[in-house]
Computed example of a mutant assay.
Amino acid sequence: MELNERNPEVVEVSAEERAEEAKLIRRMQMMMGMVMSVIAQDASLTVDEAAQMIADSRKAALAMFPDKELAYDLIWKPRFQRLMRERFRIM
């Protein structure tokens, strides 16, 4: 990685790095979609099991994207909260 000469705080990212990040994003989106589908569709799933799946998916997402906890909290946490409210009728 090289620093941009006009703005030293901006780091240029190679095409390979962008492709790898896009691949990780797609993988995470697929994982989150599968977790949400299981929670929404599995009638035998308990609240505790669903909560554990959400916690595990959060750990996996943060393992793929370290230091992106705020992004997770802004994007995925509200979706999971809404799903849990709808699925289990909890507030």
Rank of each mutant, 00 (worst) to 15 (best):
L62F: 05
A19W: 01
M31E: 08
F88E: 04
I39G: 05
M84I: 09
D56P: 01
E69C: 02
L70F: 02
D48K: 09
R26W: 00
D48Q: 14
V38Q: 11
A60Y: 08
A40H: 08
G33S: 11
I75C: 05
I54N: 09
E69F: 05
R89K: 15
E17P: 00
D42Y: 02
M53V: 07
W76M: 03
W76Y: 15
E86I: 10
R85E: 15
Q41I: 02
A50Y: 04
M91A: 15
E69T: 07
R26L: 06
R79A: 12
E86Y: 08
T46A: 05
E9K: 08
L74W: 06
S14N: 08
E86N: 14
A51P: 01
L24Q: 15
M34V: 10
E49I: 02
D67W: 02
M64P: 00
D48H: 04
F80I: 05
R26Y: 01
E12T: 11
L62G: 01
E20Q: 09
F88S: 08
M84F: 12
E9M: 13
E16R: 10
L45M: 15
M32S: 05
A40P: 03
D73A: 11
M30V: 05
K77Y: 10
T46N: 02
A55E: 13
V11Y: 09
M84V: 12
M30R: 02
L70E: 07
M30I: 01
K68W: 00
E49Y: 03
Y72D: 02
A63N: 04
A15W: 03
Q41Y: 06
D42S: 08
I54H: 11
I90V: 15
I54Q: 06
L45Y: 03
R26P: 00
A63D: 14
Q41V: 02
D42G: 01
K77W: 06
F65W: 09
L74Q: 13
A61N: 05
V13N: 02
Y72F: 15
M28D: 04
M91C: 09
E86H: 09
V11C: 08
A15P: 06
L83Q: 09
Q41D: 12
I75M: 10
F80T: 07
R85Y: 13
M36T: 02
A22K: 10
N7M: 09
M64Q: 05
M36P: 03
P8N: 11
R82G: 12
E16Y: 03
R87S: 11
A63F: 04
R27M: 04
E9I: 10
I25E: 09
R58Q: 12
V10F: 12
I39Y: 08
P8C: 11
A19M: 06
E49Q: 15
M31A: 04
M34C: 03
S44L: 00
R26I: 00
E69M: 01
M34W: 10
G33I: 04
A43N: 12
E20H: 03
A19E: 12
S44A: 14
V35F: 01
N7L: 12
E20A: 12
M36K: 15
A15F: 07
E17V: 06
R6N: 15
K23V: 00
R26A: 11
A15D: 13
K68N: 04
E86R: 14
